[in-house]
């Protein structure tokens, strides 16, 4: 990508904005200045709501005052250049950031009315409700069966071996992986192809029937065919789950999501219906990003 706009300098940098004004007139009247998130951060049927979220890594603030709803049965895509805080924000939603010692989160994130950063909130039930799929496929170095069965086992979701067998089969069917692996459930999950591994990880996440699935660039390590397969799967899963996906690929965001949130340097710049964001962005930064001026 080119660097005609220095991403670090643009926020509140009036001279730069003026220098580009003659072109800006023609494409978009908005300026680079950030004066609060553009668009509607609320969703019709919110499943999770985040308000005034700030995140620090040590002394460095990574996220500034982000508010965003994640609606029931929708796929919301979070896009933005590297280091914009989209992954950090995603990891706040199931408190995955707790594992980082120096990370501090303030603000309010609610899941169905409960504040997940409440002192009394335990991360175990939270993460059972808000599952996660990571950038790199990370199946456990155990059998395919055990990969799926692990979550239900530790949460005590099933009573008997046959129930567990059924759950593993139905989960793998939901993930569209059953036909490919039914004859080798006892083989290690790490022996599958990259795309299959990632679908196994998605299956592992849905095996505990979460309400929300967070996906952190789930296709960045996959080839286009495997990516297409995962995207199909996401579309199928939308009927029963709510999905928040962080992606580097704007095409992917456009293909799979209903709403899109654009992050820039820790700020949520713009939120809106995916179609609107990609056809009529309202903020100048969004416009520049989706048209490929930087990224």
């Amino acid at each position: 990508m080119n660097t005609t706009v220095d991403a670090a300098a643009v926020i509140g940098a009036a001279p730069v904005a003026e220098a580009r004004n003659e072109e800006a007139e023609t494409v978009n009247p908005a300026v680079y200045e950030f004066t609060g998130t553009v668009g509607d951060i609320t969703a019709a049927q919110p499943r999770m709501t985040a308000r005034n979220v700030d995140v620090w890594y040590g002394d460095k603030q990574a996220i500034f005052d982000v508010g965003l709803d994640i609606g029931q049965n929708e796929i919301i895509a979070m896009i933005g250049p590297s280091g914009c805080g989209k992954s950090t924000f995603l990891r706040c939603l199931n408190r995955m950031n707790d594992t980082i010692d120096i990370c501090r989160v303030s603000g309010e994130i609610r899941l169905g009315g409960e504040d997940i950063y409440d002192r009394r909130m335990d991360v175990v039930p939270l993460r059972a409700q808000v599952g996660m799929v990571f950038q790199k496929p990370n199946p456990f170095p155990k059998s395919i069966y055990d990969n799926i069965a692990y979550g239900p086992r530790i949460h005590g979701l099933v009573g008997s071996k046959s129930e567990l067998d059924d759950l593993v089969e139905s989960t793998l069917r939901k993930a569209g992986l059953w036909d490919e692996v039914k004859d080798r459930l006892e083989q290690p999950g790490t022996g599958l192809s990259g795309g299959q591994q990632q679908r196994l990880c998605i299956a592992r996440a849905i095996a505990v029937s979460p309400e929300v699935i967070l996906m952190d660039e789930p296709c960045s390590a996959l080839d286009p065919i495997a990516t297409a397969r995962v995207e199909e799967l996401m579309e199928e899963l939308r009927e029963n789950y709510t999905i928040a996906i962080v992606t580097h690929s704007m095409q992917q965001a456009a293909r799979v999501s209903q709403r899109t949130a654009y992050f820039h340097l820790g700020r949520l710049i713009e939120v809106g219906n995916t179609d609107d964001i990609f056809t009529q962005p309202r903020h100048r930064l969004t416009e520049d990003y989706i048209t490929g001026r930087f990224g």
């Binding site: 594992t99 991360v123 175990v124 059972a128 990571f134 170095p141 530790i154 592992r204 996440a205 095996a207």
Partner: peptide, 27 residues
Amino acid sequence: VPPSIREAALGVGASKLQTITHHVLPL
């Protein structure tokens, strides 16, 4: 032991002790 394995276990809701005894220690 790669951090991705820890994240995977934590991500499905394993407690810290479960993550350590089920995954990290065996590896």
